[in-house]
């Protein structure tokens, strides 16, 4: 016959059984209590460290690393055909306004809107993240000087026109079509990222003797408290003659 174990605290329990149980409990307490205390301390530690990480992580968010389109992107945006205008002579300022931008290497084809300066004195940005814009205070692309073109890396939900800009490499080409139908071809010389607090103002907006272009977008870490990226990616290119 199987003996039922007595229920805990049952009046039928014998003194002997109670004594045995008491001993048993005390032996458990000796072994288990340090384990429980260690679990408590370790748990609090882990929770504390994780909470600190949580507060740091809630302030910032690194952009996911993009990859270049897997297919040959030149099939998506072909190298444009047209008249490649020679650089204008030093004594004139004859190139037409830019109307569109093509970057076959990363599949960019966009019209160019006009950008000015905000009331705060910063560079205006395009009103939509799907197009890039030319800063009208900068030289026209193909004139002596650095023409400035800015575009968004992303919107609140999706990729922007310059999402892949940081993946461009020196030697790749950028094309600008102008209002008179002519094209200016630029070869990329430098691709760099700068914290916005150390933006290279004179390199971007300062005088240059030859025709150059600068493509600007955002990058680096996104600051969720201010709603802005902390860095700018800048692509420098020179007119191909």
């Amino acid at each position: 016959m199987r003996r039922r174990p007595p229920a805990s605290g049952s009046p039928a329990q014998s003194d002997d059984a109670q004594a045995r149980r008491g001993r048993h409990i005390s032996s458990i307490r000796v072994v288990r209590r340090p384990v429980a205390a260690a679990a408590l301390i370790a748990g609090l530690l882990v929770a504390g460290i994780a909470a600190a990480g949580l507060s740091v992580a809630s302030q910032t968010g690194k952009a996911a690393a993009p990859v270049r389109p897997p297919v040959n992107p030149t099939k998506l945006v072909p190298i444009p055909h047209g008249t490649y205008a020679a650089p204008p002579p030093a004594a004139s300022r004859t190139v037409a306004e830019p109307v569109s931008l093509l970057i076959p290497a990363i599949g960019v084809r966009t019209r160019l809107v006009h950008l000015g300066i905000t009331s705060g004195g910063t560079l205006q940005v395009p009103g939509t993240t799907a197009v890039a814009g030319w800063y009208t205070g900068s030289p026209r692309p193909g004139e002596p000087g650095g023409a400035v073109i800015a575009g968004h890396i992303d919107s609140r939900q999706a990729k922007g026109v310059f999402y892949l800009l940081r993946l461009l490499r020196p030697g790749e080409r950028v094309f600008v079509r102008r209002a008179d139908g002519t094209l200016a071809a630029f070869q990329i010389t430098v691709v760099r990222s700068y914290p916005k607090t150390r933006f290279p103002t004179s390199a971007v907006y300062g005088p240059t003797p030859d025709a150059q272009i600068r493509l600007i977008t955002c990058g680096g870490t996104f600051d969720w408290t201010t709603g802005h990226y902390l860095s700018n990616t800048i692509v420098y290119a020179s007119l191909v003659s």
């Binding site: 968004h152 607090t197 996104f222 969720w224 860095s231």
Partner: peptide
């Protein structure tokens, strides 16, 4: 700097 992103990516 230039404010060209809204954090969507």
């Amino acid at each position: 700097g230039v404010r060209t992103g809204f954090g969507g990516t």
